[in-house]
Every structure is written in structure tokens, then in C-alpha cells.
């Protein structure tokens, strides 16, 4: 709608005869278009993750001696790092001839888990996430996934880490 210019109005308001309220008005159709574009953006994000996953190189783990059998008693633990020095892991000797090892990073917020011998479970002190010693599965708390398992093999008196099972 064109407004009639009066003497009190400046020249610019005649040239740009748009009401301030109308300028800020967003119609339902415009808003729904914005929502659909947001949905498209998130779909593109999903596709981006899919493409990144296709081109992700497979991790090759090197074998690394991590402990001597004689140095861990039954029910005792040994901390080590695998595959990189920054990747802390925890090994537990659960029986005379049975060893298990897991990543020490809690799958919730990466706090270090520790072995609670009396309850026979791995515990995260930050948010009371508990993990099973037998397979690393979540027993309670906020962790969304089991602890990554370090695959071990025995060669003589050595325990050797050969890979990580997510």
C-alpha cells in the first residue's frame, strides 16, 4: 500500500514506503520454508557422515607386549597403554589362566575407569558407570556403549596386545 506523503514525512519514507511491522513480519510459508531447509541441512549432514565413513581408512593394530604373566597376581590389575601411548588400558587377571583388558576411558565422558575388586566390576568414578569385567558391557549408569576390549594373546610368559574390538 502506498502512503500519501504529507509535509511532516521525510522524503525517504515516501521512497521506501514500508511499514516497520511489515518489514519484520515472517509469514507461515516463509517460516515453514526455513524449517524444511533446516531439515535438508541435517540430511546433508547425515550424507556427509556416510561419505566420511566410506572413506575412513581401516585401523591396523600392531602387536605389542604389554605385560608379563608373572607380574600380575589373581585379582590384580596392570595399567598399560595401547595402541598409542595416550590410550590408557587396564588389564585384569580374573583367574589363574584368564586375563582381560579394556580401554580405561569410560564411554560416557572418558574418565578413567578402575577395577573394584570386591564388586568384581570396573567403575567410573565420575558418574557411577559400572562395567562388567567379563566382557566390558555396561552394568549401570550413563555410558552408552561397552568398553573397547583389547585383544590379548599369550606367548610364553608374555601377554601381547594384538588389536582392539569396539
Amino acid at each position: 500500500m502506498r502512503r500519501v506523503n504529507s509535509k511532516s514525512e521525510s522524503l525517504w519514507s515516501e521512497e521506501f514506503a514500508v511499514e516497520a511491522a511489515a518489514e519484520q513480519y515472517v509469514s507461515r510459508r516463509q517460516f515453514s520454508k526455513f524449517l524444511v531447509l533446516t531439515s535438508m541441512g541435517m540430511f546433508v549432514g547425515q550424507i556427509w557422515i556416510l561419505v566420511k565413513n566410506w572413506f575412513r581408512p581401516t585401523t591396523v593394530y600392531k602387536e605389542k607386549p604389554v605385560a608379563l604373566i608373572s607380574e600380575i597376581g589373581i585379582g590384580e590389575v596392570k595399567l598399560f597403554s595401547y595402541p598409542e601411548p595416550a590410550d590408557a588400558c587396564i588389564m585384569i587377571r580374573t583367574a589363574a589362566d584368564h586375563y582381560v583388558a579394556y580401554s580405561q576411558k569410560c564411554t560416557h565422558l572418558s574418565c578413567a575407569v578402575y577395577y573394584e575388586k570386591e564388586a568384581n566390576r570396573l567403575e567410573c568414578p565420575c558418574h557411577e558407570g559400572y562395567f562388567s569385567v567379563s566382557d566390558g558391557s555396561v552394568l549401570q549408569g550413563p555410558p552408552p556403549r561397552p568398553l573397547p576390549t583389547v585383544v590379548l594373546k599369550r606367548e610364553g610368559d608374555n601377554l601381547i596386545a594384538t588389536g582392539i574390538k569396539l
Binding site: L35, V36, S39, M40, F43, L50, N53, P144, P148
Partner: peptide, 30 residues
């Protein structure tokens, strides 16, 4: 994204499929 960053690739394809269906649904509503 959380699954991808933690090395789990199983849910990525189904999630992309579902996201695509949701986008189609949104576009249909538009």
C-alpha cells in the same frame, strides 16, 4: 555423529535413510 566418532559405523546408513525419509516428509508437509 557420536557413533561415527567412537568408531561404530553400523547405525550410519540406516540413520541416513531415516533422515532422508524425514526430509521427504517435511518437504511433503511444506
Amino acid at each position: 555423529l557420536e557413533a561415527y566418532l567412537s568408531g561404530h559405523s553400523e547405525p550410519i546408513f540406516p540413520a541416513a535413510l531415516i533422515s532422508g525419509l524425514i526430509f521427504v516428509g517435511c518437504f511433503g508437509l511444506f
